[in-house]
């Protein structure tokens, strides 16, 4: 009963947040609704027993990426004027009701097709659920340390690349004055 409530609340938060992001006309508000949506996704992860993934979602996304996006919006002045210097709308409207309806319908149809294709896969390989006490952290840690050690190390190199790339891009260019 509680698992149903938790699932319902998380799903509503995710979908409601996502719809609000698309609908909102203010970029800052859209970021806040995105935060709510990511919270909902963390709740969904908790519902299926992936507790470490839920915590990672909270730490990295809700605590990190959202702040990064907020900083980026602040620094690029996305909130001040709605019209840029060429007279065009900075955040153009996503469309009218027809666009929303068509997009939603297309998403639904593609979701149904994908689920129908993947259903045999899932019914053959049953997802093993964890018993109540067992923790997914130990499993993930063991796998990262044994089977997927290369992925672990490569991810550190990937993070290094991202760090250097980000530093290079955001470094102000030195202008040469005569």
């Amino acid at each position: 009963m509680f698992s149903n409530t938790l699932f319902l609340a998380s799903a509503l938060l995710t979908i409601g947040g996502a719809i609000a992001v698309v609908y909102s006309k203010n970029l800052m508000h859209a970021c806040i609704y995105l935060l709510a949506s990511l919270f909902g996704v963390a709740g969904l992860y908790a519902c299926i027993g992936a507790d470490f993934l839920a915590a990672t979602q909270l730490v990295v996304y809700a605590g990190g990426v959202v702040i990064l996006m907020l900083f980026a919006i602040m620094l690029t002045g996305g909130t001040s004027n709605k019209i840029n210097r060429y007279g065009l709308e900075k955040i153009p409207a996503m469309g009218n009701k027809k666009t929303f309806f068509t997009a939603g319908f297309a998403a639904l149809v593609s979701a149904m097709i994908i689920i129908k294709i993947l259903l045999p896969v899932f019914s053959v390989n049953k997802v093993t659920t964890l018993s109540a006490n067992e923790s997914s952290v130990e499993k993930i840690g063991t796998l990262l340390a044994t089977d997927h050690i290369l992925a672990f190390e490569i991810s550190s190199v990937l993070l290094l690349g991202a760090l250097i790339g980000a530093a290079v891009i955001s470094r102000p260019r030195k202008e040469i004055h005569d």
């Binding site: 990295v60 990190g64 130990e138 840690g141 340390a145 991810s155 760090l163």
Partner: peptide, 28 residues
């Protein structure tokens, strides 16, 4: 246009993901 705030946030994200990856390995 204070870009240093953004640079700090970028570096933070990288280290945050690194610590998130370190946690399960440290636990075992």
């Amino acid at each position: 246009f204070n870009v240093r705030f953004y640079v700090i946030a970028l570096i933070f994200i990288i280290f945050d993901v690194e610590s998130a990856l370190m946690f399960p390995v440290a636990a075992v």
